[in-house]
Amino acid sequence: MVAIQVLFNIALATVAYGAAIPNDISKRADDGQGFVALDFDVLRKPLNLTKALLHEKRNSISLSLINEGPSYAAKVSVGSNKQQQTVIIDTGSSDFWVVDSNAQCEDDVDCKSSGTFNPSSSSSYKSLGSEFAIQYGDGSTSEGTWGKDTVTINGVSITGQQLADVTQTSVEQGILGIGYASNEAVTDQYGNPTIQNYDNVPVTLKKQGKINTNAYSLYLNSPTAESGTIIFGGVDNAKYSGKLISEQVTQSNQLTISLASINVKGSSYSFGQDVLLDSGTTLTFFPSDFAAELANQVGAELRQVGEGKTLYFIDCNTDTSGSTTFSFGNGASISVPNSEYVYPNGDGTCIWGIQASRDTILGDNFLRHAYLLYNLDANTISIAQVKYTSSSSISAV
């Protein structure tokens, strides 16, 4: 999820439950190798035109995840008594927060359905007495209190981890942000500092010796796959073709790199701006002028879908042969099949897979075709064309 960025939450109208990652990978735990593999199942929600999400912003521990449309939800536990939580793993934000057992859910949101936390039942919980508050771009908010406790991920525990115990929220479930610590929510709703920047979960994993490097690699698998993998502190060298090419992160608090150009249906368009690589986004988003150029090339049309909201639609029978190629500043190049840009809407119309936004985000319809290694210590994101395979060759970063 990205904090304070505009995106539409659009997912395919299919539901898939996953086959497991091969046993030799999914059963690995922290054994001194410096990485832990984390597998997930895919769950795709029905396409929803009216729901707009704005996110401000998101080695190897193995556990099950569930893809929540543009997000991945993992089971972790908090406290001395290991209270289970299902939280969104988010590359676009940086804070870990859970829903208190007495929390007030706002806006008809069932915020307690994915597990709650009772701090009084954990002997290792320590309240810090400072206010936690975060607001996402769609206006959804969470408020609570900062504290510290033991966090357990697939049997691997880190102690004294700072987290927020949320007592009021309009978000459906807790979030495990794994982005830069510099992007943490350390101010109140008015922008006043409430606490200093701290070691978030990836930093703590490294400092407590569970991973060697604050890094993680992402493999979403094929568009129809039922499972994929994220590896904290490691990289699976069997999951990509050619070489991983390192692109420099271009912002101090977000995982952005420079996109040089895009080739669409034989025409090349120079871009030369930052793009956010965000696993919490389903589609691809560009500034309105650039999105309009691409739309004109493919025949997509802008239509009103609600008061003050517009989306690009495309002919469901459009030719989807060939690929769109994304070229990055340091030479990395990823080809994405044009079939990724036609999303049936269930009423005979189709959504175009590239939409207009204030910000530029390459979401899941791009990320499925790239293997990515986010290295927050080196401030790089390494990219290669993905290879869909059950083979695995993991090494620590």
Rank of each mutant, 00 (worst) to 15 (best):
P70N: 15
S170C: 08
D108A: 13
N212H: 08
S390P: 02
P287L: 10
T224I: 12
Y371A: 08
N338V: 12
R44Q: 10
L47F: 02
G329L: 00
G329P: 01
P223Y: 11
A225L: 03
I383G: 02
Y216A: 03
S270N: 14
L372T: 15
G242H: 08
A185Y: 05
L259F: 08
Q251L: 09
A29F: 00
Q5L: 14
V36P: 03
V275H: 02
F8S: 11
N221F: 06
G346D: 11
V235I: 14
F96P: 04
G322M: 09
A295S: 15
T324H: 03
F232W: 10
S182I: 06
G299P: 15
I66R: 09
G346S: 09
A292H: 14
P223C: 04
I61N: 12
L7H: 13
S113M: 05
T86I: 13
C316H: 09
I21C: 09
A356N: 12
S392V: 00
V2L: 12
Y343N: 02
L218T: 12
I25D: 04
S130K: 14
D165A: 13
T380W: 01
T141L: 07
L43W: 01
I394K: 03
E56D: 12
S170W: 05
S127Y: 00
V298L: 10
C316V: 07
N296V: 06
I383A: 06
D364P: 07
T284A: 15
